[in-house]
Design a protein around this nucleic acid. Structure first.
Lengths: 111, 111
DNA sequence: TATTAATACTACGTTAGTCGTAGTACGACA
DNA sequence: TGTCGTACTACGACTAACGTAGTATTAATA
């Protein structure tokens, strides 16, 4: 089965994560499961990649984190929510994606 | 004007270069001009990126280089031609592109 | 004819994202 | 009691792309 290598998806990890956060706050493990299932198991993000993306994006102000203090039989987690700045960044990356798609196809399609 | 950042196209530089070499042997400067014009100036590859891609791909056996000994008023250049292995790699990357496109759109489109 | 612009590279150290490996800790279930 | 799943964190390695700089030849222009 063909899967997606980290090299080719690299530029879109942040965008994918932000997109999933549009639905509401989430945390590492949940995000990684969602990426796996929504991609039809074609892309499995590495834990280290995911958590370093969270750190990077928090530094950049695209996401904000909080702890789930109200643990009702659950485990302690670090939740992330998307910020307004993150929403803006997401929209820009979507536009860039449309453009990238167009341009790459101009080269790819000529086979 | 929106342009394409190196981060998002990163995974496809080699594929784009190989694609242009399908037309026949070429060299650095020519490839960079072609990328610029074919992309509608939306993507301008850096010289260092381009030449290091050539080196990498030659090491991997995707391209082979030769000098233009027969200079007729032209400059000395290093030409690259795509190999069979490179053609195979190109085809694989095209398939991976189709898949990546599908998967990324699954996330991007939900806005 | 002198100078500038365009061509065609090469060298080198830096940065940033991903990776591999490893380890911690808690809860559920058998 | 032990294993599996969950939910992370730490750390060093790797590599593609970057910025900057410099070299050398040819073509165009003043």
């Amino acid at each position: 089965m063909i899967t997606i290598s980290s090299d080719v998806i690299r530029g879109y990890n942040d965008t994918i994560i932000l997109c999933l956060l549009l639905d509401g706050p989430s945390y590492g493990y949940e995000i990684s499961k969602k990426i796996k299932s929504l991609s039809g198991e074609k892309y499995i993000i590495k834990e280290t990649t995911l958590y370093s993306a969270f750190n990077r994006m928090e530094k950049n102000g695209y996401v904000a984190s909080f702890q789930n203090e109200d643990i009702l039989g659950g485990k302690r987690r670090t939740y992330y929510r998307i910020t307004d700045k993150g929403r803006q960044y997401y929209r820009e990356k979507c536009e860039e994606w449309m453009l990238t798609k167009e341009v790459v196809e101009r080269f790819i399609k000529r086979d």
